[in-house]
Design a protein around this nucleic acid. Structure first.
Lengths: 342, 342
DNA sequence: CTGAAAGCGCTTACAG
DNA sequence: CTGAAAGCGCTTACAG
């Protein structure tokens, strides 16, 4: 960089005032006479002065930056969330920096350990690989808000959706259509697979409530929650002879993959197989058929997460950790016989 | 924050060395005896020391942060791009901060003016509302790489796709299927609508090359490039009686919306209407039918953008501005009669 | 190979 | 209402 850096001092000299006064003007403080303010503003403009944020941050001990750590930015659910978090942060005059963990343990460990400490004032973290114990063992004291259900509460603020209740609702809706062989796609076994376990629990609870027997062959395990996993899982399910007449996918992305497999093989949806997902991503509203889904209030998730963080940035660890459950809603669309254009 | 901050000085005291030595260890410099290094590392661990990045940044005059400014993070094309940019930046030890402009003039003006000056070392900018003249008038000297075709070259580094050639290829492909009434969805009139103008030019060039007459009724204007715009445009096109037998949508998102309208109204795709898009977003690979599209090399776009930026961060404005054109490819899928699972 | 000291550009008590 | 000065926590010539 070959630019001659312009500092507060230069502006002060040009305007004929002290740096303190320039600082006051820049920060919008009140006790500056209009004439002085005008002179200072003219000098700022003339020199094209920009405050050096690193210096300000160093002095103030804060940066105004928060990190959002998610598995991948182009998973629609996280992309939508990221948009809302960035928008919510803006209202608090916070800037968002993105960490992509890829869902890997190493990366998530780094995030939890605070490898960006001193660069960020807070962290919104949607972990995939770390268990709640590992998260609880965190020593870094950067304020953190966790997204997603975790068993052991009390160690960090977190925002959750009632996964069990929501999964149960979705499954009961399929049962209410008269379907008897309702499959579940999205089971996972590893320690941190909280979401999977909770949605599976909801699914099983619904079967029981509806008086339907559970059948292991109807529960399909997946490696990840992408379209390809849903497509493969659906293929396996059909090949196994389990003969499902409905499928609850633990997220929309897998449901879209499953839908592709069904249509490709000539099944009618919802005629022969009804299909429901989870997340309410925009893709689900434009496919054919449109996708029945559980819609968590993403705007609420984002705005509460930023709020929690902003609050803790002020109050530090003096406040007790809090958990908030955001509402969700079952949206019935064409894939389970709902109206066109729901 | 009630934490007692741990600084280099504290580590130095505990390890019994000077701050310089600690700094050397932290930054991995060579000339430190192994014994000293071990002692320092132990002290760092014991105190849980983290370097203060604001201080380092202030001193070094750089932050290691670059901004990615895009209209919206949850437009699949930008979400995919963001993922790749974050990944590419990581290789250069750069962190990415996100600016969402919403495509608004005011926000884009702020970005161009450098409202994050001193916080970021560079900017990757995908403008929607600003004209190339407005961008050229920028005074902020933060290194910037523009994404997307711009007429007036030479004022900033930029990465482009050959929009005219690509649009022509897509349209010629539709013509090669024997379609005679090929529509275009995505025309836009405002000053900054470069992308639209170039793709339209490619479309018209293809019609001429194929010996097809152009028909104004087959060119549909849109406000934005979202699914809803594509769906509405397709409805207008069908209602107008223009009777298209193929449609080239200027992006995949609109194509998915258009597809929804076609299927909803009972048209067969590609039987009655063949459909092609632009961008190769993942959704297009899982719909039914799968979507024929132009696939720009997004990985290349992201990695070259970060490379350009990193280079200019070192060399400043001494280097001439550069333009690079990344390759693209026509992917023929089911929506124009291509194989299943392409 | 290591130490003492200056200085990056701010903000903020402290005086006046 | 404004000024002079200290200090945030680093890195980096400069000595030794």
């Amino acid at each position: 960089m070959d630019k001659p850096r312009v500092g507060l001092k230069d502006v002060a000299r040009l305007a004929g005032v002290s740096v303190k006064t320039v600082s006051n003007v820049v920060n919008g403080y009140v006790h500056v006479t209009p004439a002085t303010r005008t002179r200072v503003e003219a000098a700022i403009k003339e020199l094209n002065y920009r405050p050096n944020l690193s210096a300000r941050n160093l002095r103030q001990g804060r940066t105004g930056i928060i990190a959002l750590a998610v598995p991948e930015l182009d998973i629609p659910y996280f992309a939508e969330l990221a948009r809302l978090v960035v928008a919510a942060a803006e209202k608090h005059e916070l800037t968002v920096l993105i960490d992509q963990t890829g869902g890997s343990r190493e990366r998530e460990q780094l995030v939890a350990e605070g490898f960006r400490a001193h660069l960020i004032d807070g962290l919104i973290f949607s972990p995939l690989a770390l268990t709640s114990e590992e998260l609880a063992a965190r020593v870094d004291d950067t304020p953190m808000v966790l997204l997603g259900e975790r068993v052991s509460a009390g160690t960090a603020d977190h925002i959750v959706v009632d996964n069990v209740a929501a999964a149960k609702e979705a499954t009961l809706h399929l049962a209410s259509l008269g379907r008897r062989r309702i499959a579940a796609i999205g089971a996972q076994d590893f320690a941190a697979a909280e979401t999977s376990r909770l949605r599976l629990a909801g699914y099983l609870a619904a079967l029981e409530a509806a008086g339907l027997p559970s059948d292991d062959r109807l529960v399909v395990h997946v490696e990840a929650y992408h379209r390809a996993d849903g497509a493969r899982a659906m293929a396996r399910l059909l090949d196994s002879g389990a003969a499902p007449d409905a499928v609850f996918c633990f997220n929309d992305l897998m449901a879209l993959g499953a839908l592709r497999t069904l249509l490709e093989r000539g099944y009618s949806v919802p005629g022969q197989v009804a299909l429901a997902g989870f997340d309410d991503i925009e893709d689900g509203r434009y496919g054919t058929p449109t996708l029945t889904t559980i819609s968590p209030d993403k705007r609420e998730i984002a705005s509460r997460a930023v709020e929690f963080l902003a609050d803790r940035m002020v109050k530090g660890s003096r406040v007790e950790t809090r958990e908030i459950r955001v509402p969700h809603e079952l949206l019935i669309r064409e894939s389970t016989g709902g109206q066109t254009r729901s």
